[in-house]
Write a protein that binds this DNA or RNA. Structure first.
Length: 430
RNA sequence: UCCAGCGUAGCUCAGCUGGUAGAGCGCCUGACUGUUAAUCAGGUGGUCGCAGGUUCGAGUCCUGCCGCUGGAGCCA
């Protein structure tokens, strides 16, 4: 008998199959057992009738509990009474492990309890759907960049010093010397871009900021493409096209999961390039018109970002931020020295910044000046300065935050559900 | 780091102006050939976060600490 996965069960109507999985729900009705079986790809109802399997197997099957593991053999039937439309008439049933006292029950639970049991919580329907969408998003990003002829060049996780000198880093003891967990792979991608033309890294980033909000993790994932000879406009265009590709892939291949999350996909379906674009200066004007007060030169706070994002129903781009609120390596706008050639992409529906990027400073003297202005240790940046000594070219890139992007695509209330094992201010378990 | 809220059964919670601890679910036993978070009958369940204080008496009031949740700043 062929072992099949539940997501493919429709192809086996009328045939005998073997399923291997776990008991998702279990109901007894006299000489009849209803087992909702879960195998990671879906769920299906299996019906055990005492008369079909015999006394001995029926007695064994009666001992099954929620999350017990089991192998079931039987025939696939179409039945409108079953959730999912198909059910399995069981001929043989072989319990593998009888679970006792599974902590996550069919009733409601609080967030703290579920987080404490995250290793079991990911078995649930909703978490399964979110993490399958995460897998699709990551696959889409890799496929997109591959098709655009980008080379994957992994950036290191241990770094000798702060990339940008702004955020707080996790320090580790590196054989007696301090090293830091990376907050961004970008600087290394600049080296990669000058070696490969188009390069990207995809990996975790770490921030030791004591942020306690629905939008923050201490360990999160980002993809960071960098393109030699590209300018700001070309970087913005690539970011838009990548996001559109991600959304199209999820809509196409993870429709069932979006439905399970009850995501209204209208906004996702309407996303197309080019995105609305607004300069920082225009954005400040608009924010003030919307009733929030913000002076030119200040970075957006949460209320400003929310007000601005609510005035769009698509992802949008804010470009040319004041140089003072951006990192030292951002190139200044030749038309206005106060501005940087930078951009942020913000998601609608209150999800905030999902992409940040721009054009990098490629002149050695200017970059040296910036490093001094920011009080950064020049020695640590010698390799980075070498990129401006040997064949320096204009180049641009950006970073896209995976978890925030998934949170928006799934319209989740909190970013912690978008990553299998979230690391937050007070959470390193499990 | 700062601000706010919450800690009572395995889970989700109720417990009034202080008077000897409650419900639903889960779990265990039994009944049922079509259940959909099944239903019905019976049973099981407590260091009221920790420490101190006020009081004849504290789950309830006060102080400190710990934990959790949300938000701010900062950021993706």
């Amino acid at each position: 008998m062929e072992w099949v996965y539940i997501e493919d069960i429709g192809k086996y109507e009328g045939k005998d199959v073997e399923l291997r999985g776990w008991v998702f729900n279990f109901r007894r009705k006299g000489k009849l057992l209803f087992i909702i079986l879960r195998d990671g790809t879906g769920i299906v109802q299996c019906v055990v009738f005492k008369g079909d399997v015999g006394e001995e197997q029926f007695e064994k099957a009666k001992r099954l509990t929620q999350e017990s593991s089991v192998i079931i053999r039987g025939s696939v039937k179409k039945d409108d009474r079953a959730p999912g439309g198909y059910e399995v008439s069981v001929k043989e049933i072989e319990p593998i492990f009888i679970t006792k006292d599974y902590p996550i029950t069919k009733k409601e639970h609080g967030v703290a309890f579920l987080m404490e049991h995250r290793h079991l919580w990911i078995r649930s329907r909703r978490q399964n759907a979110i993490l399958r969408i995460r897998s699709e998003v990551i696959q889409a990003i890799r496929d997109f960049l591959y098709s655009r002829k980008f080379t994957l060049v992994d950036s290191p996780i241990f770094t000798p010093s702060a990339c940008e000198g702004t955020t707080t880093l996790f320090e580790v003891d590196y054989f007696g010397k301090p090293a830091y967990l990376t907050q961004s792979g970008q600087l290394y991608q600049e080296a990669a871009a000058l070696a490969f033309g188009k390069a990207y890294c995809f990996g975790p980033a770490f921030r030791a900021e004591k942020s306690k909000t629905r939008r923050h993790l201490t360990e999160f994932w980002q993809v960071e493409p960098e393109i030699a000879f590209a300018n700001l406009d070309e970087a913005m265009k690539l970011a838009e096209e990548m996001l559109v590709y991600i959304i199209e892939r999820v809509l196409e291949r993870r429709k069932i999961e979006l439905e399970r999350l009850q995501r209204d996909t209208k906004i996702l379906e309407s996303v197309k390039t080019p995105f609305p674009r607004i300069s920082y200066t225009e954005a400040v004007k608009r924010i003030n018109e919307l009733g929030e007060s913000l002076e030119w030169g200040e970075d957006f706070g949460a209320p400003h970002e929310t007000a601005l994002a609510n005035s769009f129903d698509s992802p949008f781009i804010v470009h040319r931020f004041p140089a003072q609120v951006k990192a030292f390596y951002m190139r200044r706008d030749p038309e206005d020295e106060r501005l940087s050639l930078s951009f942020d992409m913000l998601a609608p529906e209150g999800y905030g910044e999902i992409v940040g990027g721009g054009e990098r400073e490629y002149d050695l003297e200017i970059l040296l000046k910036r490093i001094k202005e920011h009080n950064l240790p020049e020695e640590a940046f010698q390799w980075y300065l070498d990129l401006r000594r040997y064949g320096s070219v204009p180049h641009s890139g950006f970073g896209l935050g995976i978890e925030r992007t998934i949170a928006w695509i799934c319209k989740l209330p909190h970013i912690r559900e978008t990553i299998p094992f979230p690391r937050m201010l007070d959470t390193v378990y499990p």
